[in-house]
Amino acid sequence: MTNTNQPEQTPRISLLGTTALLFEPPGKMDIHTQRRIWWLAREVETWPCIKEAVPGMSNLMLVFSTPPRHVDSLEVDLIAAWGRAEELHLEGRIVELPVIYGGEYGPHIADVAAHTGLTIEEIVKIHSEPLYTVFALGSHPGYCYLGGMDPRIATPRRKVPIRGLPGGAVSIGGAQTGVSASPGPSGWNTIGHTALSFFDPLRAPPSLLAPGDMIRFKVERTIK
């Protein structure tokens, strides 16, 4: 499924080797689809052969405990379950994140400006305006994928991923935005930085934020 093409009508199911299966339903990447993904994850993780059901951005990865001998029947069950899927409403909290935009804190904000034709001030205003919902966690410990970014600031992922990005990087990848929780590689465009800590392996659950929580970016300052 791509942003640049017609959405498909039936869910797309593909294999990730013998380790996992990826379920990508048709439709928009919005809160309604995402709530059904959350419902499906809860349903599917009780099935035999499934070690973990991992929500993505309007998709779901099923990790096998043992590879099923017959993938076909699993696909049929999955499509049937998606047909039954309701919107699961998760009670979330609202967390405010102070962000410094631009300069050394947002080394790729110029690339976003070049791609979108917007000024840095406009990008910061558009990015900090919405109340974002945590759709899913992924990428690295504690990282949140957020729903609700204004498509005007969508910018493709970088041609070559950056190897050593710092923790707290606020970035844009395609039509999505998120905040890195620790240093590491990334293919996204970094536009700002926040100092909040998102993850503690000794806490249960280890992540500060969970799907359904909400984030607001508060502009601390903008470096031009």
């Binding site: 791509t2 990826l22 998709n59």
Partner: peptide, 14 residues
């Protein structure tokens, strides 16, 4: 054509 995926789970070997 240009491909831009929504973020999704991946595993070692992909």
């Amino acid at each position: 054509r240009t491909l831009e995926q929504r973020s999704h789970g991946i595993v070692p070997g992909v």
